[in-house]
Design a protein around this nucleic acid. Sequence first.
DNA 1: GGTGGATATGCATTTATTAGCATATCGCAA
DNA 2: TTGCGATATGCTAATAAATGCATATCCACC
Lengths: 127, 127
Amino acid sequence: METKFKARVQDIKLDYKIWLANSEGNGILGDGKWRMLKLISEKGSLKAACDELGYTYRRTWGNIKKIEDFFGFPLLEKHRGGAEGGSMALTEEGKLLVKAFDRFHSDADAVIQKGFNDFLNELSGKE
Amino acid sequence: METKFKARVQDIKLDYKIWLANSEGNGILGDGKWRMLKLISEKGSLKAACDELGYTYRRTWGNIKKIEDFFGFPLLEKHRGGAEGGSMALTEEGKLLVKAFDRFHSDADAVIQKGFNDFLNELSGKE
DNA sequence: GGTGGATATGCATTTATTAGCATATCGCAA
DNA sequence: TTGCGATATGCTAATAAATGCATATCCACC
């Protein structure tokens, strides 16, 4: 049985976000900051990562501080000065956090994508 | 092997949102609006539902309009006037949409909760 | 035919987010 | 020892989002 939804189904996109929050419900680490951590690590530089993603250095720096304040230890080694001006790299803890979130996220991606397909089928009346 | 994260793990909460968007990426229907639709249906009234959830009538009305504009047909039957002042009830399409999103959401809830537990264990160094 | 209470909608105001500017610090290399 | 480029941080301006009025419309019931 077809439904009125069928005609619109191909225009429906799915989006979702997962994030960690503190006990007051304030966001600590989510998709955006996670991707940023990975890119900083890859580039070895906060500035370079911000330039690539189009984020402001100021804001991203504040985000990193929030995450580290929550955990109570640094996720990034920061180096100032030198020929290159400075650099950043993930600490061991930073690497572990990114790796764990990677796995979490890719598991969630798969399941949510499948659930979305089922959802669209159900809307269309295919079951 | 224990990690520095272990001491903070019990303070990490998980939150996530799933929503449908149009092709421009604008949000159409997400967790909040979905819950609101269900409550309107339950109460038979937009005003009563807003009062209960603490949302403003003005804003919620606009949200409903956005959803219906996207789909091109109504999800709610609206009645004005009468002894009670007016009422709302889900249309057949509205019921189908809520039901499909219900299933989608509960599937996602289960998997994400499990993924989060695994994530915390991984952070703690339990594997 | 007037009342009450909910739907319907515009608009001004307040509040929260984000962007952007300015400026200080650091340390290698020329 | 001076310059360069990135990290570090305060503060203000611009945007976006939500709130809060105000007001009109509708209609069963008395």
